[in-house]
């Protein structure tokens, strides 16, 4: 094969044949076609003017961005989205870390596989089905409100749907697998002999965790948290199923701009702003934490670490 390759000469000028350029440039073409062009269109549309009751006018205007800044409603939705994404991330981390730790450190491959399948299998269902499942479980005649009443936590079964906590619970459930899988890899990569060494030197389990495991899984915690946070910022289906308008995220408002209000330019503007905020948050986190996250590192040391 190598011989065949050698017998295929480059062109006289030493350049590759055109077909090989196509093969080599495929990733770039895919990136440009699937990401850069739509993003550019979104950006361009955000400067067009919406015509009430009609379509849009192809004039360059910044009025959509001005509207975002002038109307408190949209900033309020952005802040709400940030808040609920933070709560979801925290919930996922608190629930996901012990689970990932147990999976990564267990000697039972059967248990590990079983729990992994259980965690991953929830991803096979669409958001809509999982959202409606939680709507059933959290209604006053659903499992959890009845359980809460039986345990004496409430006087009677209280419906949580639609409402803030229904949304939080469902979001943590939906994004927990992403946290667990990220943390599992990180914890699994920690040399278990380091933990044993700490214990041999007299450190208890908590001290070992605090001074050995936790620092060595910092990258995993930040990566998993950023992943869940970014995904939570874009959540659209769950607030519509499990929330009332006060629980609508900016993504829902964007969806409404396009599908209900036919205001594509303003929807594009809100999308661009949401994206910029998310990118800025990732950049700041990476910079402050100095960790290798999503393959993006802040420092050379980060890349090596």
């Amino acid at each position: 094969m190598a011989h065949e390759a050698q017998t295929e000469p480059a062109t006289d000028s030493g350049r590759l044949p055109p077909i090989k350029y196509l093969v080599v440039s495929y990733p770039a073409i895919a990136l440009v076609t699937l990401f850069a062009v739509p993003l550019l269109l979104l950006f361009v549309f955000s400067f067009f003017r919406n015509i009430s009751g009609g379509y849009l006018r192809y004039v360059v205007t910044a009025e959509n961005y001005v509207r975002f800044l002038q109307e408190p409603l949209y900033l309020d939705r952005l802040v709400f989205s940030l808040r609920i994404a933070a709560v979801t991330t925290l919930g996922s981390l608190v629930l996901g870390y012990p689970l990932a730790y147990r999976l990564a450190t267990t000697d039972s491959s059967l248990l590990r596989r079983a729990v992994m399948v259980l965690v991953v299998s929830s991803l096979w269902l669409t958001f809509i089905i999982r959202g409606y499942a939680w709507a059933v479980l959290l209604r006053s005649n659903g499992l959890f409100p009845i359980l809460a009443a039986e345990l004496g936590l409430t006087d009677a079964p209280v419906s949580l749907v639609p409402g803030y906590w229904a949304l939080v619970v469902s979001m943590v459930y939906v994004f927990l697998p992403f946290m667990v899988l990220t943390l599992y890899t990180s914890i699994k990569n920690v040399d278990h002999e380091l933990r044993e060494a700490a214990r041999n030197l007299g450190a208890g389990p908590i001290t070992t965790f605090r001074h050995v495991t936790l620092p060595l899984t910092k990258d995993g915690i930040i990566s998993g948290s950023l992943l869940v946070f970014v995904l939570s910022m874009g959540v659209y289906v769950l607030p519509r199923i499990l929330g009332n308008p006060p629980q609508w995220t900016l993504a829902v408002v964007i969806g409404n701009q396009v599908t209900v209000e036919s205001n594509v330019p303003f929807g594009a503007t809100l999308s661009i702003i949401l994206m910029l905020v998310v990118v800025a948050l990732i950049a700041v986190t990476v910079r402050l934490a100095g960790v290798d996250t999503f393959g993006v590192s802040a420092t050379e040391e980060g890349e090596q670490g």
């Binding site: 009430s52 308008p245 409404n256 209000e261």
Partner: peptide, 13 residues
């Protein structure tokens, strides 16, 4: 359309 929807969103959100 835009004016009504703006007021409406403020009202329900």
């Amino acid at each position: 359309q835009e004016f009504i929807n703006q007021l409406w969103n403020e009202l329900i959100i």
